[in-house]
Design a binder for these strands. Structure first.
Lengths: 332, 332
DNA sequence: GAAAAAGCGGAATACGTTTTCTGGACTCAA
DNA sequence: TTGAGTCCAGAAAACGTATTCCGCTTTTTC
């Protein structure tokens, strides 16, 4: 509407013609490469501006050998954990002029193969792989740069940006200890999940004598949180803290404690894990927990991929969660 | 590893050479076009198979004029509503061999422009636009097929696949009426949200004489749900149902009712809206609500886009939610 | 048995860039 | 004035595919 655009897309040929140069020169001017007089560059840029030229990425991809596109493969249907990761990654990648192709495998290896084929065909510059859990997964078999985010690769020579679950549990344990709690129970998710067991054992090790009984394993639900309170109080009536493997469990714990007339944190302090707002803030009282910094994790994964594409050699690393203190451990 | 691949990517030239045909013929064989003997097609395909040939999408895009790629623009950072929409859309699009570029504008028009430019440059075949709310938004200005999903366009000549909020409210109202409830209150979200007000007014209209007092507007939180119960019971102590504008509000309502010793649904039936599992299933009791069928919405948007790309003329439509009955209206 | 038709595959061109190579114009010193 | 050296810009090749002719071979038809 604004220009005489749409008549037929503007090509670099048109820009070159208007600027009175060859298309090679126009290309150099627009990409800041080659040797050109400043005056020439300016003239070309002006022409491009005037015509509303946007470079055709197809031609560029073919010619330059780089597609300026990366794939993002998730097994998780963009669940609670992968979304922040993807946002972070997408943020740094798109700032680097890279577009991101989304591929949701739904944990189906047939779909995964389909997507890998599609990405290969599109000659993406690299791939970020992420997934539902922090359990390691077998690597994908492609000949281009790959970074694993949140869900690390089982191959240590791959670049994986993961989460330091154990450290998060330690931070919370330290927090409870610093508050003088000395009879702390631990309630976690399913034992088979790396996240559940690594958090539980790291917390147990760090709590030392302050740990009251073995960690309890159940599932990641409020229901289990409520249920665990009854088990715990029967086992140790004089408990003064319950550390949970997730905010969801912690919320259930708080609910049940309130029903039993126990004050949180007065009688018993409660901690969560994840800083999932829907749970942590809606809980009564709001939960002290650790923030997983997943968006930061995604951002680092994006940066690592950029390095890898630029033929650097980034290192794998694990992100340390940060403590978030709310009313479930420190009364208002 | 498996093949002698990676030595240098296999091109159609290599396939043609191995099959003993020209590259034009190879192209026809692989794309099922042109006139070729079956035997020739088979020979080419076999060669492609043997070499592990995957077509270079860049060359194809350039030559065929179609990129087999679409953009998905969201303003919502992939929130609770847009994710199912995107999954549904991505599902049908990738089945149609289209790859999906993800673009999260974070409600920033500068970012939106950036992405539109990027998509234009990549010559995507079409764009799906979605967003945080069901409030209409101004259309984007591009010369390619666009479908609006969940968040409709303000321009009625655009193709929008939206949600029939009013119908969902009616379905729930009908359900409550059919259970014989005759003093029903309505608690909704912020009045300025189309979703809040359209649900409330549709429910009010449909409930007729069974509506007890004007709908209450607050925000989409459990806190507000709890708070509203007190307001409501003070206003009408003999209420027998509370219909809520969201599951989150409904969960708060249930919690507060339980605290007050009211039985749900014995004394008061409660309905939600959204069928957000985290709320609807974790609520005590689990919530009767309507499922928004967002994934279906996304799927329809994807199909509409495919039609539009194939130069069809799909119609806008609004998806009708479906009733999900749980214990908050029908005691076990 | 010859002419027309149908079936088949190849050569060439197009798609829109980037990039290398080459040569012209200018400057400067001898 | 000529030679070397520098700066700039154009011509052309390359990227990997799809597709439009066109001509050759084979089959069909009278």
């Amino acid at each position: 509407m604004s220009q005489d655009q749409a008549a037929s897309v503007v090509r670099i040929t048109d820009v070159a013609a208007l600027a009175g140069v060859s298309i090679g020169t126009a290309s150099k001017a627009l990409n800041d490469t080659g040797q050109l007089r400043d005056e020439t560059r300016a003239r070309v840029r002006e022409a491009a501006q005037k015509l509303g030229f946007v470079m055709d990425a197809r031609g560029r991809a073919l010619s330059s050998g780089r597609s300026y596109t990366v794939g993002m493969i998730t097994t998780d249907s963009f669940g609670r954990f992968t979304i922040p990761v993807m946002l972070g990654a997408e943020d740094v990648l798109s700032a680097g002029q890279l577009a991101v192709l989304m591929c949701d495998t739904r944990d189906d290896s047939v779909r995964e193969q389909h997507y890998i084929r599609s990405l290969t065909s599109r000659r993406v510059d690299g791939i970020i792989v992420t997934g539902r859990s922090s359990d390691p997964r077998p690597p994908i078999d492609v000949a281009i740069p790959v970074v694993y985010a949140f869900t690390p690769s089982t191959d240590p020579s791959d670049v994986s940006i993961s989460l330091d679950d154990a450290r998060g549990a330690e931070i919370l344990a330290d927090h409870l200890l610093s508050l003088g709690r000395s009879k702390v129970a631990y309630v976690s998710g399913p034992r088979r999940h790396a996240a559940a067991s690594s958090r539980a054992s790291a917390a147990a090790a760090h709590l030392g004598a302050a740990l009251e009984g073995d960690p309890l394993y159940g599932d990641w639900s409020e229901q289990w949180g409520r249920q665990s309170v009854d088990l715990l109080l029967r086992r140790s009536p004089d408990l003064d803290a319950i550390a949970c493997g997730s905010d969801q469990i912690a919320r259930g714990v708080c609910d049940r404690l309130r029903e039993l007339g126990k004050s949180v944190p007065g009688d018993i302090a409660v901690t969560g894990f994840d800083d999932w707002n829907v749970m942590a803030l809606a809980s009564r009282p709001p939960l002290t927990t650790v923030n997983l910094r997943l968006e930061e994790l995604g951002r680092l994964a994006g940066q690592a991929l950029l390095e890898l594409i630029a033929s650097g050699r980034p290192a794998s690393l694990a992100i340390e969660p940060t403590l978030v203190i709310r009313a479930s451990t420190i009364g208002s």
